[in-house]
Simulated scan of single mutants.
Amino acid sequence: MMDDSRAPTNSSSSNSAASNIWQDREIRFDIPLAHLDLRRGEFQIDSMDSVEDTKGNNGERGELIITNLRLIWWSHKNRRTNLSVGYNAIISINIRSASSRLRGSTQALYVLTKFNGSRFEFIFTNLVRNSPRLFTTIQAVFRAYDTTKLYRDLKLRGAIIQDKELKLLPHEQTYNKVNGVWNLSSDQGNLGTFFITNVRLVWHANLAENFNVSIPYLQMKSIRIRDSKFGPALVIETTPRSGGYILGFRVDPQERMRDIYKEIHSLWQVFSVNPIFGVDYTMEDRPQPLSSVTVQRTTDDVEVLDQEEDNSDVFAAYYADGTKNTDREAVFHPDLGLAIENLREGISLEQLWSVL
C-alpha cells in the first residue's frame, strides 16, 4: 500500500473539490424533491412515465428516470413518495414474474441491492404492454457503470500501464507526462512517472509497471505541498470513501514540483465544476415519425386500490427478506402436512404459490 502518513508535517496549501456525491452510492427513500434534481455531471438517459414500484407501492403508477448514476422513481399521486437507487449499491438485476395490481401476473425487473449492511429488493413493472425498455435500458446502463470504475474509484496495482504508457479510458486525455517522480511510501522511495489527465492522476514505478496507483479527481480530498523527512513533497489525501490514503511524491527541483502542483490543482478544480463519471450510453433506437406511432387513446380497464396510511418504517417494504432480520413463529399447515413459518398478515399460501 502506498500510504505515507509520515510524509506531511507542515501544510502550505489546501483546497476542496468534488464532494458530497451520494447519488450513485446510496439508497434513499422519500427524499426532498430537491434531491431528485440531477447533480452536476449527472444526465438523464431515459424516462418511462408508466412504471409501478411493485414491492413498495403496488397499485400506484409512477415515473422512472434512468440516469448515468442512479434510478429515480416517484409516484404520480405524490412526488414525495419516491426512491433513489444508486448503481454502486446494486448487487444483481434479474427478470422474474411478479404480481402487480395494475398488470396482474407479469414479468418485472428485480433489483437486489445492499446498503449500510442491509439488503433491499426493488421490483419495477412496466405498465406499457410489450415494451422491453425497462429491462434492456437499465441492464445496459448498469453494465456501463460497472465497467467504468476507474473513472470513480481509486485503484492500486492495476493493469493500467502498458509499455511505459498509460492505457487511456474513453474520453480521457493526457495533459502531461512527468518523469523523475519519487513515491515516498518507503524509506528509500521509488522512482517513477506521473500521467496527468482530465479525469485522474496516475503514478507508476519505472522498474515495475504493476506498482502503480490511479487516483481519480473524484476521490481527492486535498492536494498540498508539505514538508516531509525527504524535504518538500506533493501530498495527495483521498476521501474516506476511497480509503483515506495519504500519498506523498517528490519532484526535483522544487520549482518544477510547484508547477506540477498548480497543473494538477487546476485540473482538479475544473473537474469539480463538471465531473466526468465515465458512464457513456446512447439510445440505439431511433425515434419513428409521430404519425406511425400515434394510436387512439383508450382508458385502462384497471382498478387502483387506495392503500390505508401506513406509519411503519418505509424501509420495511423493501427489505429483501420482507422482515427486519427476525424469524416468524413456525406453525403447522394442515394442507401441506408440514410446519412452516407463519405467513405475514394479508398473505396466503395460494398467493405465494402463484408467484412461484
Score class of each variant (00 low, 15 high):
residue 76 H to F: 04
residue 288 Q to A: 12
residue 182 W to Y: 12
residue 103 R to A: 14
residue 182 W to V: 04
residue 164 K to I: 00
residue 295 V to L: 12
residue 71 L to R: 13
residue 194 F to H: 07
residue 105 S to G: 07
residue 315 F to D: 12
residue 154 L to W: 02
residue 17 A to K: 05
residue 226 R to L: 04
residue 131 S to Q: 10
residue 173 Q to Y: 10
residue 210 N to E: 11
residue 63 E to P: 01
residue 271 F to M: 09
residue 313 D to V: 07
residue 268 W to Y: 08
residue 93 I to V: 12
residue 240 P to K: 14
residue 232 P to W: 14
residue 145 Y to K: 15
residue 332 F to L: 10
residue 146 D to Q: 13
residue 247 L to R: 04
residue 208 A to Y: 01
residue 266 S to M: 08
residue 230 F to L: 09
residue 238 T to M: 07
residue 161 I to P: 05
residue 145 Y to N: 11
residue 25 R to D: 06
residue 272 S to L: 02
residue 203 W to V: 01
residue 243 G to Q: 07
residue 169 L to C: 07
residue 46 D to Q: 10
residue 173 Q to V: 01
residue 314 V to G: 08
residue 354 S to I: 05
residue 220 M to G: 01
residue 96 R to A: 06
residue 303 E to K: 14
residue 338 L to Y: 01
residue 147 T to K: 15
residue 114 K to W: 11
residue 104 G to C: 08
residue 91 I to L: 15
residue 192 G to F: 01
residue 59 G to T: 00
residue 2 M to Q: 03
residue 19 S to P: 01
residue 252 D to H: 12
residue 132 P to S: 14
residue 14 S to I: 00
residue 275 P to D: 03
residue 154 L to M: 05
residue 34 A to T: 06
residue 103 R to H: 09
residue 294 T to N: 11
residue 147 T to G: 08
residue 97 S to F: 12
residue 259 D to K: 10
residue 264 I to P: 05
residue 215 I to C: 06
residue 223 I to R: 04
residue 84 S to D: 04
residue 132 P to Q: 13
residue 145 Y to F: 15
residue 309 E to G: 09
residue 283 M to G: 05
residue 275 P to K: 10
residue 232 P to K: 15
residue 52 E to Q: 03
residue 201 L to F: 11
residue 279 V to M: 08
residue 231 G to A: 14
residue 103 R to I: 01
residue 272 S to Y: 02
residue 260 I to L: 13
residue 125 T to E: 13
residue 38 L to P: 03
residue 83 L to S: 05
residue 42 E to N: 10
residue 317 A to N: 13
residue 298 T to G: 11
residue 173 Q to N: 03
residue 281 Y to F: 15
residue 134 L to A: 07
residue 304 V to H: 14
residue 79 R to E: 10
residue 154 L to K: 05
residue 175 Y to N: 02
residue 86 G to T: 09
residue 343 L to M: 02
residue 56 G to T: 01
residue 344 R to I: 00
residue 63 E to N: 08
residue 282 T to M: 13
residue 177 K to F: 00
residue 345 E to Y: 11
residue 241 R to H: 08
residue 245 Y to T: 00
residue 173 Q to S: 02
residue 297 R to I: 02
residue 240 P to Q: 10
residue 250 R to F: 00
residue 144 A to F: 03
residue 200 R to K: 11
residue 44 Q to H: 03
residue 95 I to L: 10
residue 23 Q to I: 02
residue 265 H to G: 02
residue 280 D to Q: 14
residue 46 D to Y: 13
residue 282 T to I: 15
residue 267 L to V: 00
residue 185 S to P: 04
residue 273 V to M: 15
residue 3 D to I: 12
residue 343 L to R: 14
residue 250 R to V: 00
residue 293 V to G: 06
residue 13 S to P: 00
residue 293 V to D: 05
residue 181 V to P: 05
residue 338 L to T: 00
residue 241 R to F: 13
residue 118 S to G: 04
residue 191 L to S: 02
residue 310 D to K: 15
residue 279 V to P: 08
residue 340 I to Y: 05
residue 229 K to I: 11
residue 315 F to Q: 15
residue 21 I to A: 14
residue 152 R to C: 03
residue 301 D to I: 07
residue 57 N to H: 09
residue 101 R to N: 08
residue 5 S to I: 11
residue 109 L to K: 11
residue 208 A to L: 12
residue 263 E to S: 11
residue 23 Q to F: 03
residue 161 I to H: 07
residue 95 I to F: 04
residue 205 A to E: 09
residue 117 G to M: 14
residue 274 N to F: 05
residue 230 F to D: 15
residue 16 S to E: 08
residue 237 E to H: 12
residue 45 I to E: 02
residue 151 Y to D: 01
residue 126 N to E: 04
residue 247 L to G: 00
